[in-house]
Design a protein around this nucleic acid. Sequence first.
DNA 1: CATGAATGAGCTTTCATTCAT
DNA 2: CATGAATGAAAGCTCATTCAT
Lengths: 194, 194, 194, 194
Amino acid sequence: MEQLSKSEIKRNALIKATICLVINNGFHAAPMSKIAKMANVSPGTIYLYFENKQDLINKVYLEIKASFAKHAFKNYDPSMEVREGFENIWKQIADFKLVQVEEALFLSQCDNTPMIDEESKKEGIKHLQPLIDLWKRGQEEGIIKECCHYVLYAYTVYPLAFLMNAKQNKEININKKYIQDAYLLAWDSIKQSK
Amino acid sequence: MEQLSKSEIKRNALIKATICLVINNGFHAAPMSKIAKMANVSPGTIYLYFENKQDLINKVYLEIKASFAKHAFKNYDPSMEVREGFENIWKQIADFKLVQVEEALFLSQCDNTPMIDEESKKEGIKHLQPLIDLWKRGQEEGIIKECCHYVLYAYTVYPLAFLMNAKQNKEININKKYIQDAYLLAWDSIKQSK
Amino acid sequence: MEQLSKSEIKRNALIKATICLVINNGFHAAPMSKIAKMANVSPGTIYLYFENKQDLINKVYLEIKASFAKHAFKNYDPSMEVREGFENIWKQIADFKLVQVEEALFLSQCDNTPMIDEESKKEGIKHLQPLIDLWKRGQEEGIIKECCHYVLYAYTVYPLAFLMNAKQNKEININKKYIQDAYLLAWDSIKQSK
Amino acid sequence: MEQLSKSEIKRNALIKATICLVINNGFHAAPMSKIAKMANVSPGTIYLYFENKQDLINKVYLEIKASFAKHAFKNYDPSMEVREGFENIWKQIADFKLVQVEEALFLSQCDNTPMIDEESKKEGIKHLQPLIDLWKRGQEEGIIKECCHYVLYAYTVYPLAFLMNAKQNKEININKKYIQDAYLLAWDSIKQSK
DNA sequence: CATGAATGAGCTTTCATTCAT
DNA sequence: CATGAATGAAAGCTCATTCAT
């Protein structure tokens, strides 16, 4: 297990606090002073780790995106068949959103809001390259519909954000079967019908 | 054409300004003073039409939702067949999101953010009842998958928000064929496979 | 009974509303808009009767002072003996403070606060001349202590404001005997002891 | 002499500024910005020491009340005889009102106005307990009239506020003899006549 | 590295006053 | 006379950021 320095502990606490406050109150009600307090740190200390509030938010976003991608492709191997690979990745993504709830909610807010720099958003998208490559392969093999990857993403990964929000609001309850059902919709939407 | 009173004109200008500033800068960077300026109105005047900032945001949200629903079901008739009815509604929704871009972006921000009161959100959801009824009918007829309507919504309507965001960022270009393709994914995802 | 014109009715309603709001909330929480609403009048209308808020407050003060003086000397006759005259005036003043509670509370606030123009305050004091004359006579006759009338006022009339405040706060209950007791303290304090 | 920390100096400056502005302009014309400026402090700084304007006013009131009581009973000893004790306390109170003019004027405004929380007012009254105890003793010994202590206060301490206001407005001039005369009125009013 | 008191620009909101009707 | 929508200056208060310690 990796040993965290005091600095890293503080930095992580700040990130955790930022996520927590933003998802519960929104960016506009997540002042630096509260973030500091929740992280058991002085307001001034934040500025030792981040340039300013915007930088803090951007960094949190990028680190979650990285962690998200890591999780998504943990079990994936480019040698897998397209359908198998897709299911593998999709279920890892679903798992991330169900386990790392707060992080996922944070991403959802960032992705539908102008709170993140355009540049950081672009940076964040890069992490998904393996999935895009997989889709390209699937299209070449005639297995996946000939749509741009924005459409493919919109109909497979993006819906999970909606379900996660609904779960958070106690409107639905998600179990294994639910996930499997949702997976089938995702696959049915993008697979090439004969 | 309906005649608008001076009051209505001002109120509409305020709503328009709110939408514009929120979608471009986010809630946290849409101060009342800017909203007033953009609506060519004094800051104090806002408070003749809305109780406070939260009330303003809630009201804007609810009015857009209502207008959204009106557009969605404009051509729909419950006597239509399920597939036809669904295509009809879905394409009207897509149309709304492409034509009323700002309104749609505003809704997207509201729905993924804690900036709207829980109560107002609940109120806003009611408008979709005809679509939910249609799905129920489709499920009874064995045409649509047996998923809860949250899933159906997540895979048919919600993806449009993602595409609309991408279009706004000039990442994709949406034309008639694009819409038709997207529609097919939506339908394929929820239709009962034989 | 005198017939009031519509104008006089409105003006009176405004004065009544001003008194009511100021004594309950204080000058700082008695906005013109509330005064107007309570008087069933438009905010703009206030400015037909009074120059501005300061003028309104000054006028209310002066009118209450005049009404106060009228009441105080209603039964007084300069031909009365000093002690009898004093008791007569003092009890009328006490009566005013107990019956015209709101007006009395308003005066108390004005007299201990810089909310009234210096000029209006001076104007208001003039009304008490008969009492001062009585005191002077009492001093010449050796019945009343040789103090300036500020002291005499401070120990006879001013204490009533304190008792009235206490009564208003339900800290004490004032009946006939209470008044008689208080009168005795007033008289004992200023009467020349042999 | 006690050493004040920087914080205490600032806090005191704020209290001093509040008193000064309120007694000269009234609560309604003592904005936080002016208070800050007069205390040589930034507006935001006030909120490091006080929750809000109401809290500031309440705290100022309570601290003056405490200082007032300390002064009033500085030389008093419960073993004193009733008359001696009363004179002692009364003269200390008079001294406070003549020396700590601003503080006394502030109290006078607070006590005749709804600008202080009911709770803080109650808190402030407690400080006078020794005087009330003294009166009770005096009544048991048949030296002081059998009135409730509100009446006793109204005729002994409360009149000083009136005289102090008059002095402030240059209407009277107060010297030692004046105080002695006033004291006699106070005592004559409450002492039991044989 | 870390603190946290202090800042002051800027926020939301109020309110005395005006003026077209 | 009377209205009340509209104003905009100014109120109370917040918060990202700095800097002496």
